[in-house]
Design a binder for these strands. Structure first.
Length: 396
RNA sequence: GCUGGAAUCGUCUAGUGGCAAUGACAAGAGACUGUAAAUCUCUCGCCUUCGGGCUUCGUAGGUUCGAGUCCUACUUCCAGCA
């Protein structure tokens, strides 16, 4: 196999860059936003919608697809099974270690607030041990055990192009001491993931890559040391993980990427608000994924160049969602008022049209932002573009 | 005309002696970042120094310490009989 990742041009800081990721199911021009189709399908978007809005890759989740792994194998892998037929990435289930465990409830926050605490041990649906994680399925309450080996076997059966090592994501409230333990465990799991992945990574007749995932919270010593350790291992790329505090994101990514090998691709896990994307790209993240554009669309939050709007407040408005947008929804002439009317119609079919159109718009907004960032780097005006965009978007 | 039944916050609705009064929807505000999220939280009679104060359940009286709840009359609506 050839080189997986090629950097084409690098920012003056030596970290941020544009490039191409080659996968068995196609190339990804970076930086790129990967749409999230946890179960193999993006909510309310068809595969045609994804192509139309310029999506390059889809991220799914090994945890959610664990029971369908054999079926997906039989269909020839995630790309074929889903009908997406393009590059795919799967998460290991590491996020669920947190979201169903210590972070049950709403602890995915980027802000530390007074009173924010981890879920009580007895309430958790994910219990961490050295061997792996005991899960209780949130829907049917059935138990499951997933450790590094299980996660690798599931992902290799699913056959996404890029896999994530099985990691433990800590919450923003976890202490330094806990993060030291969790990080050491995640590093041991990384070795086990790598070893198991090698056994199965070509089983489907094409090569599947594995990214090691960096944790370490907000502490520079942990971030740098784990980056050095995992950086020395034989991973194809790296997932930049954690529950980030907004103010610390840039530093954390810089610490990681100053230590990691430059020529391997990096995926920033779970972030996509424009300010985070600019920081991510600047600090060397090549790909991103996030549920926010899609979820926020469903909740009536519409992205515009001048900031986000709450569609609830747009009754009767003739304004376009965003005057410069080139998405299908905007091209079809859907104004804020018309889209709101679909949403509030009380008719389930019209509501589904709203979900589709709103999701198309927000997703295109982020995909297009990535395209423009790429272009700005190509034209040596990344920082100017960033300042201009963020000033208009956040109004400051 | 007679006989039943019903009138409660924008709408529907709970409530048969201690109630500013249930639930749903609508409305308003906020949240959402590797999807337990087409979701969640808050407000939703008026005023408030957030302690509380005031006025409310078709209208008018009455019984009672106390009435949305019981009684009387009236108004309107619904059903059945004429």
């Amino acid at each position: 196999m050839g080189t997986m990742f090629e950097a084409e041009k690098t920012l003056s800081n030596g970290l941020g860059r544009i490039g191409v990721i080659h996968t068995a199911h196609g190339d990804i021009k970076t930086p790129a936003f990967m749409v999230v189709g946890t179960h193999g399908k993006v909510k309310f978007l068809s595969m045609d919608d994804l192509s139309d809005l310029g999506a390059q890759a889809m991220l799914s989740n090994g945890y959610h697809l664990r029971r369908k792994a054999a079926e997906i194998t039989a269909a020839g892998g995630l790309a074929k099974w889903s009908g997406w037929n393009g590059p795919t990435l799967t998460d290991s289930g590491g996020f669920q270690v947190m979201s169903l465990g210590s972070g049950m409830g709403k602890v995915v926050s980027m802000r530390r607030k007074p009173g924010l605490a981890n879920a009580a041990h007895k309430d958790r649906l994910a219990i961490v041990t050295e061997k792996g994680v005991d899960f209780v399925d949130p829907f049917d309450k059935s138990p499951d055990f997933i450790g590094p080996e299980e996660s690798m076997r599931i992902q290799c059966q699913i056959g996404s192009d890029i896999h994530m090592a099985f990691d433990e994501l800590t919450t923003i409230t976890d202490s330094y001491e806990y993060n030291v333990d969790a990080l050491a465990r995640t590093e041991r799991w990384a070795e086990r993931s790598l070893k198991e992945h090698k056994k199965h990574c070509d089983d489907l007749g094409y090569h599947q890559y594995l990214y090691g995932v960096l944790q370490g919270g907000r502490w520079e010593d942990l971030r740098r040391s784990t980056a050095r350790k995992l950086g020395a291992m034989d991973f194809d790329g790296y997932g930049l993980g954690g529950s980030f505090e907004k103010e610390a994101l840039g530093d954390i990514l810089r610490w990681c990427n100053e230590e990691l090998p430059f020529d391997k691709p990096k995926h920033l896990l779970g972030l996509s608000h424009p300010d985070d994307i600019f920081i991510g790209v600047e600090m060397g993240a090549d790909t991103f994924d996030c549920v926010a554009p899609m979820r926020e669309a469903r909740h009536g939050r519409i992205y515009t160049r001048d900031g986000n709007i709450n569609l609830r407040k747009c009754a009767g408005s003739d304004e376009p969602l965003d005057e410069s947008c080139d998405c299908l929804t905007c091209k079809a002439g859907l104004t804020r008022g018309k889209l709101r009317a679909l949403w509030k119609s009380g008719d389930e079919r019209l509501k589904e049209i709203f979900y589709n159109m709103a999701t198309v718009h927000n997703t295109r907004f982020i995909v297009r932002l990535m395209e423009e960032i790429r272009q700005s780097i190509l034209e040596d005006r990344f920082y100017e573009f960033r300042d201009e965009f963020l000033k208009r978007y956040y109004g400051k």
